[in-house]
Amino acid sequence: IGEIQRFLRDDGVIKVSRTLKEIAVKVHHQRERIMKSTGKVPSIHELAVQLDLTTEQIIEAEEAVRRPQSIYESIYE
């Protein structure tokens, strides 16, 4: 993620919505993985640590993929 962010930063005009969507996908996969292996729902903190993200990023990402605009993007990308 750090790498991606650095790349995106260089570009300068990359939209946040895009980065957040990528984070949301990672979070979703990790959550499924944890639930399969432990049978428990992970906490946001656990996911943040495992994915080297901040809890803030997870909250933002989860919300961003709810937006109609993001749905539009994921359909047409």
Partner: peptide
């Protein structure tokens, strides 16, 4: 509505909520 949702999420964070609780 989205603002209200992230506010409550962030507010709960120190209490280490699970994904489902949140």
């Amino acid at each position: 509505e989205s603002l209200a949702r992230v506010i409550v999420s962030s507010f709960m964070l120190p209490y280490d909520p699970t994904f489902d609780e949140l």
